[in-house]
Structures are given as structure tokens and as C-alpha cells.
Computed example of a mutant assay.
Amino acid sequence: MPLLHNRINNEELKQRLLAETEPRTTISFYHYFQVENPLEFRNELYKHLDVLQVFGRIYIAKEGINAQVSVPAGNYEAFKAYLYSIAPLNGLRLNIAVDDDGKSFWVLKIKVRDKIVADGIDAPSFNMYQKGKYVNAQQMNTLLKDTNTVVIDMRNHYEYEVGHFENALEIPSDTFREQLPMAVNMMKGNEDKNIIMYCTGGIRCEKASAYMLHKGFKNVFHLEGGIINYAQQVKQEGLDSRFIGKNFVFDNRLGERITDDVIAKCHQCGKPADTHTNCKNDGCHLLFIQCEECATQYDGCCSTECQTVYNMPLEEQKQLRAGIDKGMMVFNKAKVRLRPRLGE
């Protein structure tokens, strides 16, 4: 079966996006369900979404779908109607971005994967559909007041660093497959606690809640729709936000503000800052936090070494990075690389 995909170069697509006058809405959604033929489903999805000018990233696997997309405002209802016409996706919750200009994506990419969330689970008895109980924003806030509640953040370090729920436990690993058994070990002896798992949009914490139940825990919950849905509900219902700071997102924004609190620090000077950026040196692209002053001082680079390379003629830069995977650090997960003072 031929793979349907875009054939226009990225730069032209970016320029087309910037020239658009119609506003776009950024949406994320996922659903665990049985996909019999992922490639066939992928191509059918691409054919319909391309017509609606949907941009973004979608992953398809036998276990379901995971998507982050932007949709022209005028096509939103048609987009929603098409998704809901797919029986397993009828009534699917669509998470609307909190802080968004609609310019996050400029091309539609739909990929087939082994799993929509790599988990390392190989136990035949594991059942994804036996998962924890959903909690909404109000229920989350109520449970957080209970001293018998433990809140576990199922995201990476660089996500946790800029924003998290009050008193949430960070699992010290930046791969989901490692975090699952670590969460079980951390909770041993606390089997009687209310355990709430949360993540950005719900996909990781839903699987994590099923894994905790699989491992014998009883009172397991997960935040419905993740931080994105929580923030929307807090705003709509006038609730106090128990999530503080920014919610890291995996698109060009690299974050959406939930509260005014700045709980992280610039990795170069140590001043309060929570703006993630990628090093401007194309041979590095390290993901790190940089304040405005350091962005000016270091030309958007993570170190003086990278700044030197960044200011070289383009041909010299290309020679230096020959054979280097220039994109390997865009979402770098090595906590040790996020040093307190990268510029020194």
C-alpha cells in the first residue's frame, strides 16, 4: 500500500503557514483502542485530514492513536465530525491548547508505530483497558487536600522543571518505560494511599494507572485529559489551580502558561526563568532554559563554544558538523546535560 504524504519542502510550508490569515486551533487527543490495520487506517486518516488542511503529528499503532494538530477555525467542525464518524473515536475528548497562536505546525505527519506510548511492558496479562478512575479538575483539587493522597508526575524532568502540581512526586528518569517500574517501587508500602497519576494530555498517566493496577495497587486515579484539560476546566469553572507554572508542550511553543509562577531557573545565570529553547548552533540543538538576558549575551546558544560556532560562516559550520546528527538534542532527555551554568 503506498504511503500518502506531503511532497512540498518545509521552508515553503512554513512560509505558507505564516501567510495564513485564518486563525488556527491547536488540539491534542488520544485514544486506546484496537486498530486492526494501522497502515490502512493511517492512509485513510491522512486522506481526510489533508483536505481539511490539518497540520501536526499523529501516531498510529495497534493500540490506538495519539495526535497533536492544528486546524483552521473554519474547518474545526468538519474535523470534529470526521473524527466522530470513526466509531471508536465518537465522542472523543479534544484538548484545546491553553496558550496558543495556532502556528505550532506547518505540515501533516502521520506515522505508524509499534505503540503510541513506548512502555517496555511485555507481560501477556497486562490489560490496558483495566485502568484507574478518571478524575476531573474539581475532583483532583479535592483529592489533593486529602493527606492520604500521593500525586505522581509521569512526565520528563524538563517538563516537571517548569511546572507541576503542588507536592507532586517526580520520578527521576526521562523515559516512560523506566518510570513505570520506578513508580511501583516508590509506592511500595503505600498500597492504601490514593495514587493519582498525571501527565500533559492524559496518554501516559492513563497507561501508568493501568500498570499500577496490574501491579496490585487498588486506589489508582488518573487526571482526565491531563494538565491541558485540567487548566481548561479550572478556567471555565473558576477553580483554584493546584498546578503551578508552565505546561511543557511538544510543539514550537515549548510551553503554555498555566499560572504566573516562575518556578524554574535559567540554566546559564540561575535567575528565575522558564522559557525553553533549543541551542541555535545547528550542531547542538540542546533543549535548555534561557532568560532574555542570556539569550542576548549568548546569541541564543547554550555555551560560549556553541556561540563561537553559531557565528562562523555557514560553510565552516557545515564542515564542523559533518557526520553529526544535528537534531539529536532537540528533546534531549539527559538530565545531567541541564547544568546550572551552561555558559561558563
Score class of each variant (00 low, 15 high):
E63N: 15
D114I: 09
F243I: 01
L169M: 09
P124R: 10
G64N: 08
R337L: 13
G225P: 00
G189W: 02
T147E: 05
K103N: 10
T149H: 05
Y158G: 04
Y230E: 02
A208Y: 01
D122Y: 05
A273M: 08
P2A: 10
V35S: 05
A73L: 12
E170T: 04
P2K: 15
M197F: 02
A137C: 00
T26A: 13
V112R: 11
D99Q: 08
G225A: 01
K218T: 10
L89E: 08
N6P: 01
A210T: 09
S209L: 07
R253C: 05
R24K: 10
M197V: 02
L213V: 08
F248N: 02
T308S: 15
P340S: 12
G226E: 02
V112G: 11
Y82C: 11
K335M: 09
A81D: 15
T175E: 14
Q130V: 14
T142V: 09
C199G: 04
E206V: 09
T308D: 13
I289P: 01
A81V: 11
C294L: 04
D240M: 13
H48D: 14
I8N: 13
P72W: 11
E237A: 15
Q68I: 00
C199K: 00
R113P: 08
N332A: 10
D251S: 01
G202K: 03
P2V: 12
F29R: 01
F243G: 01
D100H: 00
Q268W: 09
V117E: 12
V184W: 06
C266P: 00
L94T: 06
L94W: 05
F243R: 01
H214G: 15
V150Y: 04
K14V: 14
M154V: 07
R321M: 15
L92K: 00
Q34F: 11
E178V: 11
H31R: 07
E316M: 14
G91M: 13
Q268Y: 12
F288W: 05
L13M: 13
P181I: 09
K62W: 13
H164A: 04
V150G: 02
V234P: 01
